[in-house]
Amino acid sequence: MSWDKVGLPTKLRHWYGDMEVEGYLYTAGIAGEKFFKTLKERGKLLASRCMKCDVSYLPARAYCPSCFSEITEYFEVEPEGNVETYTILRVGVDGEKLEEPVIVAFITFDGVNGGLIHRLGEMDEKDVEIGMRVKAVLKPTDERRGEITDILYFKPA
């Protein structure tokens, strides 16, 4: 039986419910702790390398998903890389029109596998292109909390 024609769904007998878990506390994990500590304290990105596969991962991983080795080799990477792909947001998550378009990019870094998704800034949407060089703009050291938004955005390098 379809009730499309009833119009307002609340005209049917109903019980309003919600899934009332109020929120989640996610841990950064073993490698994540190191990654965000490095970002907060040193303003650098942290990668890790599987010595067996000779493959590196950014953000750092505690284990190699390819061979299952534990990874103990961590190294810092300058927060400067290349735009692998990007998109330009004109409407927000609630469908509202954005006054200023937001540019979001997938950025890869020199000598490591993986990368980050982040916003681009200090540039016009007409100037963004795949392959362009960008570098991170960080919050001042005393405002950084060890989270991905310690990076405000990436700007042209």
Binding site: T27, G29, A62, P65
Partner: peptide
Amino acid sequence: LETPKELAWEAAK
């Protein structure tokens, strides 16, 4: 502290 993925890896390994 471990993420769910890290927990899975520890047991699987």
